[in-house]
């Protein structure tokens, strides 16, 4: 019996399988190369890069919570230039699509990083992290408002010919409206979800556990929220959705794929088990084989809902 075909196409880029490492949890790949063969991944999304270096937030930056964790790293990164000089050339040794996540404080900063990244070698696609606060609009996240999100994406679209993925924040009223708006503005794929806003308190010190008080929740705790959003958005748009949120096993990934995700990204799970992306790839293949499917696309959105 031949092995099932795991290949997928997202925003015009070909992935050998649908399993991607999520932004911010996998660095630029280097740290995990001793644990797994990066050539086996469907793609890698970098930690979000900004045009200028960012020092990030004070500690504590994380806190473990029931079935999840909070983080407020604050987009610490060495800036686009250092990334292009030190990390991209290193990643080029692998047979691995590199999706560069970009962020900024205002549209101008997003455009500058977009233009810079678009003229360097080794980038397969851009993932626009629209969860960043828009400092020109009182720090309200770009991803909170369909108009603001669409304006940003349309502007970025004019700065680059690279395939464009837009990563949505779940901390919004109507996720479908935002997804539709950014697709109209030129997004060729949608990643969702980013982290869910949350907080935790140490009752002994009476202090918030994160120095920045509020942070982003990730891990299995957010999986049902992510799955619901992926299902709603996948039905409403005609570009692929990358499902993200609490995926730690092949079964988790398959839930997202059945709900309509064309690919999945694994974040927090790699902290516990660096092998998890590989185990997920193998588990998806096993599931397809066991159930007699020749290719992954046969099960994308194959959710059966009783009348």
């Amino acid at each position: 019996m031949s092995r099932p075909d795991l290949a997928v196409e997202i925003a015009g880029i070909k992935l050998k399988n649908p399993v991607i490492t999520a932004s911010g949890t996998f660095g630029y790949g280097r740290e995990y190369a001793e644990f797994i063969d990066l050539n086996r991944l469907g793609a890698l999304v970098t930690k979000t890069i900004t045009f200028q270096p960012r020092s990030g937030n004070p500690v504590p930056r994380i806190c473990e919570t029931p079935s999840g964790m909070l983080n407020s790293i604050g987009l610490q990164n060495n800036g686009a230039e250092a990334f292009a000089a030190n990390d991209l050339p290193w990643l080029a040794q692998f047979d691995l699509p590199v999706i560069v996540s970009i962020g900024g404080d205002d549209i101008d900063q997003y455009c500058r990083v977009t233009k810079f990244i678009s003229q360097v070698e080794g980038v397969s696609a851009l993932e626009v992290n629209i969860s960043c606060p828009n400092v020109k609009f009182g720090g309200l996240g770009f991803g909170r408002d369909p108009r603001m999100a669409a304006d940003l994406v349309a502007k970025i679209r004019t700065c680059s010919t690279l395939p464009l993925i837009v990563k949505l924040s779940p901390n919004v009223g109507d996720i479908v409206a935002i997804a539709q708006a950014v697709v109209r503005a030129g997004a060729q794929a949608i990643s969702l979800i980013n982290t869910v806003l949350g907080m935790a308190v140490d009752i002994e010190s009476k202090r918030p556990r994160l120095k920045s008080v509020v942070g982003g929740l990730s891990g299995p705790a957010i999986k049902p929220i992510a799955l619901r959003m992926v299902w709603e958005v996948a039905k409403a748009i005609d570009v692929p959705v990358i499902g993200i949120g609490g995926i730690a096993s092949a079964a988790d990934a398959l839930e997202f794929i059945l709900a309509g995700a064309g690919a999945v990204a694994v974040g927090t799970a790699v902290f516990m088990d660096p092998q998890s992306p590989i185990k997920i790839i193998e588990g998806i293949e096993e599931y397809l084989t066991k159930n007699g499917y020749d290719k992954i696309s046969d099960i994308v959105g194959a959710l059966e809902i009783a009348e």
Partner: peptide, 9 residues
């Protein structure tokens, strides 16, 4: 979190 230098926590 990661312990290997990737997550900047």
């Amino acid at each position: 979190a990661c312990g290997v230098g990737a997550c900047l926590a």
